[in-house]
């Protein structure tokens, strides 16, 4: 047996000393990545966001979802499939029990949320978004040591997307998980059945409008417990009082 190792101690040291240089180089790397994707996808690339030296996000259209994967794998060397998941951008209708400090069900917050929902505009994260459901996938280049997060907006309440399995076979289980957890159907998925949940399970647990029953029954101790230390700022006083 011949142990292989391309990286010896010297390389590690060298990398450590050239950290500053590497950071700049990495930025160019990520910019080039976005450029390559823009070239490959054309209009398919909606938005991109590069955080220098840290990470990169791109948002593609749902139609360009598989093309993006193919371009990333074949043109950008992203051989490694990280994960595939989704985000539900609709704020939870259950308010502070679930995910917000502001009580949406009773008070001003509820109106805001209702307004948001009515207009279809959600407060979304990095690289933007227009719809409630957003696909999220991460691939990595094990040679160039750079990863990228790909997002795609999916329209509708029962959204559909193309399957990544032809490009990354590892997406199989991740798509099954997204299917049962978010209700996102993947076209041409060979085996779209429940992964974690029992086969007769109804509902999509990771959607924000799926109530976490334990929290409905018993108030969340996380908010109740919040107490200020003496002499600390007032910025979070509201929670302490509400309990």
């Amino acid at each position: 047996m011949i142990p292989l190792s391309s990286a010896d101690a010297e390389t590690v040291d060298a990398e450590a000393t050239e950290e500053a240089a590497a950071e700049v180089a990495s930025d160019e790397q990520r910019d080039a990545l976005v450029a390559a994707l823009a070239d490959a996808l054309g209009d398919g690339l909606v938005e991109s966001h590069v955080e220098p030296g840290v990470d990169v996000w791109v948002r593609v259209t749902a139609e360009a979802w598989v093309d993006a994967a193919r371009a990333l794998r074949d043109r950008c060397g992203m051989a490694y499939f990280g994960y595939l998941s989704a985000i539900d951008w609709m704020p939870s209708p259950y308010g502070r029990d679930m995910d917000a400090q502001v009580d949406l069900t009773a008070g001003d917050g509820a109106d805001d949320a209702a307004d948001e929902a009515a207009t279809g505009g959600y407060e979304t994260g990095v690289a933007g978004g227009d719809t409630r459901f957003q696909l999220l996938a991460r691939v990595h280049d094990p040679v160039g040591h750079v990863g990228i997060t790909v997002k795609a907006d999916l329209a509708g309440d029962r959204p559909e997307a193309d399957s990544w399995i032809p490009v990354y076979p590892g997406a199989d289980w991740h798509e099954r998980e997204a299917w049962e957890m978010f209700g996102i159907t993947f076209r041409d998925h060979p085996n779209q059945v429940h992964l974690y949940l029992p086969s007769h399970f109804e509902g999509n647990p990771l959607r924000k409008d799926y109530p976490l029953l334990a929290r409905r029954v018993k108030p969340w101790p996380g908010i109740v417990d919040v107490e200020l230390m003496p002499g600390e700022d007032d910025e979070d006083e509201a929670e302490g009082d509400e309990s």
Binding site: L4, R73, A79, Y80, F81, Y83, G170
Partner: peptide
Amino acid sequence: VGLSYGLSGANIRASGVDW
């Protein structure tokens, strides 16, 4: 194949991927 399935750690290093 290992990379496209997202194998990582010692599993992928045992396939010769130096990562």
